[in-house]
Design a protein around this nucleic acid. Structure first.
Length: 882
DNA sequence: ACACCGTTG
DNA sequence: CGCGACAACGGTGTA
């Protein structure tokens, strides 16, 4: 077989990669962009050139013979940035995983090693490919040696062999050395002949073929060129020597040591996971061209469950079940399960048709049998329509992965988890169904197609869950997982299934009311501006305000004038149109997002709104709500607040609304252990008034509302990871004053300062921060070399434990409220959570007990040095619960 | 697909 | 030195 050697200039490629790619970090904050670029380049050339041998040459830090001959050699080079320097060692380790030979030797550059090895290889009948970003290596090109010069960072290469060099430059590869001897090289600080540039250089080399020959024939030269050459003969010769790549470096090389292919895939995979190169994992599998390895189907045994009773016995004796329901598209409340797939051993899968599901209820609703799955809330909801309560959801791989890395860029999709944990390729849901309007529904799939997909999911659940469990244990998140997040799946499933009742007529009325106001405002605005235009277009609005009406430009966006509320507020006094626009914006928002948006999504069966609650979205541990988002229904402005009148309790019910008072500041007081703030809370003082009194040094009863709201802003700022600038913007005060406020604050609450400092320090050291329940958020930004990024990282570090602990607390409360209501066999339902607020739709007879349970469970969710305080309100609409 | 804007905690 | 609050979702306009 032909032997093909690839030899890479390590320093050159890592440099190119570093400067071509944006900053990247693994989750511990290690810089990885240059390693990543190097690795993608490596895969690419392996792919194209299919080498039998590979070697990477590196420079050493020690001076080379060139420095000794010419001390100015490579002088004036910029120092290597630390962000790049730190990537060398990990890259070398990775090369070791690939079992790729590395070559370096004192006194010579990587170039010289490459020159030597390529010569030797060529003599032994190899085809050689040299990979570098440095055009100097073109001199090594020959019939059997191709120099590959990277382009566009490291993404592409240009090939140079003897013929292509001749064709392109009308010179032999070795004549490049002569050319450089004349021209010099700025980046290496090789002088060359002063005054001779590329053009003249090429002309001379073409005519005289080498520097030596040129020098012998200077009498044939004319004019200034002649004097330049004659006066700089030695310089030219030395420059040529500096530019000449050495081809007989005293280095011991056995070419057979450079054989490529002895790598251990598992080592590489493990290192890739460590480096965060999840997108490259599949490339490792493909390394030896093993298409079959990747495409290998799980192909577990899938068959219709014939003997249901026997299987039920097996499940009961094993005490566990992997399951996945597949649903037709349709109403959340309808019975529309196509198949329920179940497996005990993760190897034999059975499917149950809709009509047999009832026979399986005993197993599904048994609290003895642990259920394993993927996106189990879907299964829970799907079964609810059959009046089956899926009990003991014990392990959902999506939820587990969310805890393992909530800030991960990759999705929690099964296919991604299969790749990450098992290095197994499987179809993603999008690959299965297609995307966009043409996307298929599950009911459109061939059974074969579907069963392959389900087989992969079952296989993944089975094999990933033990690894995840280990990881949860190691990070002390098993408690959070088993006692909070997993039980919460059922709570959220019920919230979605129950939904919230809306008054459609009332919503329509509001819509009419809003539209009338919009029409009037529209006319007034056109009147004031002198022309009709699309007020909703920031672009057109910008033109009207800042060009036509010539109002002062306050702020610009990337694309033009900023017209946001803050800017408009500053322009209020300048023109009567501004207030109209502000009002217009407000009402249009209410109408389109809330009136139209909500109307479109009322469930025709229940006349209720069934929002989706997502447990794996936020980086801090909060829940999010979509379709519709019920967590941002207006409340601050009266006009918007009216929307809450349409969220009502069913007949014979009331809404019991309970919200935590200052939960985040209480968490902060507890976590920091600041006696001053703990004391304030435990004496039930108004925290903002107290803060005002302490920070501004005024007696409590002299705190004005202005001072109080300033203190409130500072309290907020602290939670967000404060900066003097932002606070000054918020309070419209000078930065200097804002700075004083903060200093005063941190002085009075000195343990809060300590807490913040410690948190940042710990985040920098470990790469993550934790909440009360050990929920983790990785913060790679905190190690960024970019000032702005790093500061963001610090703010994340300060905020995440506070916001995240508050999220922990309300999640515990939700689980406990739900359990308690169930225990008491109440008919009332928990239907909504808005970060620090829970809403129960309580049947009239149960209102008092619900109030008691909710308050009790929320206030006692966790034991802290600060007690938790819950405000309760009852009303027949959300509007009234204030 | 992305930018801008506005709504909530 | 540098910029600038934390966490979400959805509608509209524009390229």
């Amino acid at each position: 077989m032909d032997k093909r050697l690839i030899i890479i200039d390590g320093n050159s490629i890592i440099n190119r990669a570093f400067y071509a790619l944006p900053e990247m970090n693994n989750k511990e904050g290690l810089k990885t962009n240059a390693i990543y670029g190097f690795t993608t380049m490596l895969f690419k050339i392996i792919d194209i050139y299919k080498p039998t041998h590979i070697s990477v040459a590196f420079d050493r830090k020690t001076p080379t013979f060139r420095h000794i001959e010419f001390k100015e050699y490579k002088a004036g080079r910029k120092k290597m940035p630390d962000e790049l320097r730190v990537q060398f060692e990990p890259l070398k380790e990775l090369l070791d995983n690939f079992k790729i030979n590395r070559l370096e030797i004192d006194g010579f550059e990587a170039d010289d090693i490459i020159g030597t090895v390529s010569k030797r290889a060529e003599e032994n009948g190899y085809k050689v490919y040299i990979v570098t970003g440095d055009k100097d290596a073109i001199q090594l090109a020959s019939d059997n040696t191709t120099t590959l010069i990277t382009k566009k960072g490291v993404g592409e290469v240009e090939e140079y062999d003897f013929n292509s060099v001749m064709e392109k430059y009308e010179m032999t590869p070795t004549q490049f050395i002569d050319l450089k001897g004349l021209m010099g090289d700025k980046s290496d600080n090789i002088p060359g002949v002063p005054g001779i540039g590329e053009k003249t250089g090429i002309k001379l080399i073409k005519e005289y073929s080498s520097i030596e020959n040129l020098i012998e024939n200077t009498d044939k030269l004319k004019g200034s060129v002649k004097t330049k050459i004659e006066e700089n003969k030695e310089l030219a010769v030395m420059s040529k020597r500096l530019a000449t790549i050495i081809r007989d470096v005293p280095i011991e090389i056995n070419l057979e040591d450079l054989v490529f292919g002895d790598y251990n895939k598992d080592d590489i995979l493990e290192n890739f996971r460590h480096l965060g190169f999840t997108s490259l994992l599949s490339r490792v599998l493909e390394l030896d061209g093993g298409e079959d390895v990747i495409e290998e189907k799980t192909n577990l045994n899938i068959s219709k469950l014939e003997n249901i009773d026997e299987f039920i016995n097996t499940v009961n004796s094993k005490g566990k079940l992997i399951l996945k329901s597949v649903r037709k598209q349709g109403n959340i409340l309808s019975k529309n399960i196509l198949y329920l797939f179940v497996s005990v051993d993760g190897e034999n899968i059975y499917y149950i048709n809709e009509e047999d599901i009832a026979r399986f209820e005993g197993v599904l609703s048994s609290v003895e049998i642990k259920k394993y799955g993927y996106n189990m809330k879907e299964d829970y909801i799907a079964l609810r329509a059959y009046n089956i309560k899926l009990e003991n959801m014990n392990f959902d791989i999506t939820i587990a992965e969310y805890l393992i890395d909530s800030a991960s860029a990759t999705s929690y999709e099964c296919s991604a988890l299969a790749m990450k944990y098992l290095t197994k390729k499987m179809k993603s849901e999008e690959e299965l169904l297609g995307k966009g309007v043409k996307a298929k529904k599950y009911q459109d799939l061939e059974f074969e197609e579907l069963s392959e997909y389900i087989s992969d999911i079952v296989y993944t659940v089975k094999n990933v869950s033990p690894k995840m469990e280990k990881s949860l244990n190691e990070t002390s998140m098993d408690g959070l997982f088993y006692h909070v997040e997993m039980p919460l799946v059922e709570v959220l499933g019920n919230m979605e299934y129950e939904g919230m009742k809306v008054d459609r007529d009332k919503l329509n009325e509001l819509g009419i009311e809003f539209k009338e106001i919009i029409n009037t405002l529209e006319k007034e605005i056109y009147e004031l501006s002198g022309e009709p235009f699309n007020i909703n277009s920031p672009k057109q609005l910008g033109v009207v305000l800042f060009e036509k009406l010539e109002l002062p430009v306050i702020k610009k966006t990337k694309t033009g004038y900023s017209t946001n509320a803050e800017v408009l507020d500053k322009l209020r006094d300048k023109h009567p149109i501004i207030d109209k626009i502000t009002e217009y914006r407000q009402i249009v928002k209410l109408n389109s997002t809330y009136v139209e948006g909500l109307l479109a999504i009322i469930n025709p069966i229940s006349n209720r709104i069934h929002s989706s609650f997502n447990q794996t979205i936020t980086t801090t541990g909060r829940i999010s709500s979509t379709e519709p988002n019920l967590q941002n229904i207006p409340v601050r402005m009266e006009m918007g607040r009216k929307i809450r009148k349409v969220f009502i309790a069913d007949e014979g019910h009331e809404l019991v609304d309970a919200d935590y008072s200052q939960v985040e500041l209480r968490v902060l007081a507890h976590m920091s252990g600041d006696e001053n703030m703990i004391d304030a809370f435990n004496h039930d003082e108004d925290i903002h008034t107290k803060t005002a009194s302490q920070v501004f040094n005024v007696p409590i009863d002299e705190v004005t509302s202005d001072i109080r709201s300033a203190a409130k802003a500072v309290n907020f700022g602290i939670v967000y990871g404060i900066s003097d600038f932002a606070l000054s913007e918020d309070l419209h005060i000078p930065v200097k004053q804002a700075k004083e406020y903060i200093e005063n604050y941190l002085d009075k609450y000195h343990k809060i300062k300590e807490f913040m400092d410690n948190t940042i320090e710990s985040a920098t050291e470990h790469g993550y921060v934790t909440t009360l329940l050990n929920r983790r958020r990785y913060i790679p930004e905190i190690k960024s070399s970019n000032f702005m990024e790093r500061n963001r990282g610090k703010r994340f570090a300060m905020n995440a434990p506070i916001q995240g602990s508050a999220a922990d607390i309300i999640k515990i409360a939700m689980v406990n409220v739900y359990k308690k209501m169930e225990e008491c066999e109440l008919k009332s339902k928990l239907i909504l959570q808005v970060h620090d607020e829970l809403i129960v739709e309580a049947i009239d007879a149960e209102i008092e007990i619900v109030k008691r349970i909710v308050k009790e469970e929320m206030e006692n969710a966790v034991a802290m040095d600060v007690h938790l305080d819950v405000d309760l309100n009852v009303g027949s609409s959300w509007y009234e619960t204030k």
